[in-house]
């Protein structure tokens, strides 16, 4: 099978409801290997929910998730979707890295132990092998000198870079970023942005939910504008930011940001 032509991730008709509210409403999306997608949109538009659904942190009510061509994660019983066995879900998550707005580093572990945790516990690698990977990833995000400290001593930007290293240590095929710079002080955004940029340059496939237009402008292959649970527009950055684009709501949203 030739996997090169096959999309890495394919979402078909993803729907997620919270009681009355439909947070994600029949979204379709194809992510090809090496692609960088940026999803923007007003808060409450379902961007984060969609991203979390890809990682099964949100259980969808309807739709199909295909990863590397296989339909994954859910079993259909009596027309309702049921999450697959834990083992299957964990196996899928292990191939998808996720970075959160609030970092969620493990506070009781040193920076090194944080990054080692995935290879060690999930992939059952030995201490030495896990440490080797962790050091490599910490080097990548430029925090080798912080390996022995606890997260409490780090700045927000450093924490987020450790979180990126922690996700990378699993050698994921896809990286999901859920507003990676939204919780940072403005002067710390740059270092995290640069780290993600460098990762993009390495060819990592990534989906980024953000309010930071720099991501959309500088590293997106496609920009998706989401509103009220649906994709309004899916464009290249050049088209997206050009005034030719005839969408009032996007222009209003962008104007509010600038």
């Amino acid at each position: 099978m030739n996997t090169a032509k096959q999309p890495l991730l394919e979402l078909v008709g993803i729907t997620k409801r919270f009681k009355q509210l439909t947070a994600v409403n029949g979204v379709n999306l194809v992510v090809n290997p090496g692609e960088k997608l940026v999803i923007i949109g007003p808060s409450g538009s379902g961007k984060s929910t969609l991203l979390r659904a890809v990682n099964f942190l949100e259980q969808i009510d309807d739709g199909i998730i295909r990863f590397e061509g296989r339909e994954v994660g859910y079993l259909r019983k009596h027309g309702k979707l049921h999450l697959d066995r834990q083992q299957v879900i964990c196996g899928l998550r292990a191939e998808i890295g996720m970075v959160f707005q609030h970092f969620h580093l493990f506070p009781h572990m040193t920076v090194l132990a944080n990054v080692m945790e995935g290879p060690l516990t999930v992939q059952k690698k030995g201490q030495r092998a896990a440490q080797e990977i962790a050091l490599e990833m910490l080097g990548k995000v430029g925090l080798l000198d912080k390996k022995e400290v606890y997260p409490a001593t780090l700045s927000g930007g450093q924490k987020q870079r450790v979180a990126i290293a922690r996700a990378l240590a699993m050698k994921p095929k896809l990286m999901l970023f859920d507003e990676p710079t939204s919780a940072l002080d403005p002067e710390l955004v740059g270092e995290v942005f640069d780290t993600i940029h460098a990762l993009a340059d390495e060819g990592m496939t990534m989906v980024i939910v953000t309010h930071h237009m720099g991501f959309a402008r500088e590293l997106a292959d496609r920009v998706i504008f989401m509103e009220a649970g649906s994709f309004v527009v899916e464009e290249t950055p050049a088209d997206f930011f050009s005034d030719q684009l005839g969408n009032e709501r996007i222009r209003a949203f962008l104007n509010r940001l600038i």
């Binding site: 964990c90 196996g91 998550r93 959160f100 969620h104 999930v122 992939q123 996700a167 699993m170």
Partner: peptide
């Protein structure tokens, strides 16, 4: 968020609890 981060790494519920 700790549970979510652990799960996102691919940990099982048991692993997340224990570790």
């Amino acid at each position: 968020g700790q549970m979510e981060a652990a799960k996102a790494l691919g940990m099982t519920y048991r692993q997340a609890m224990r570790r």
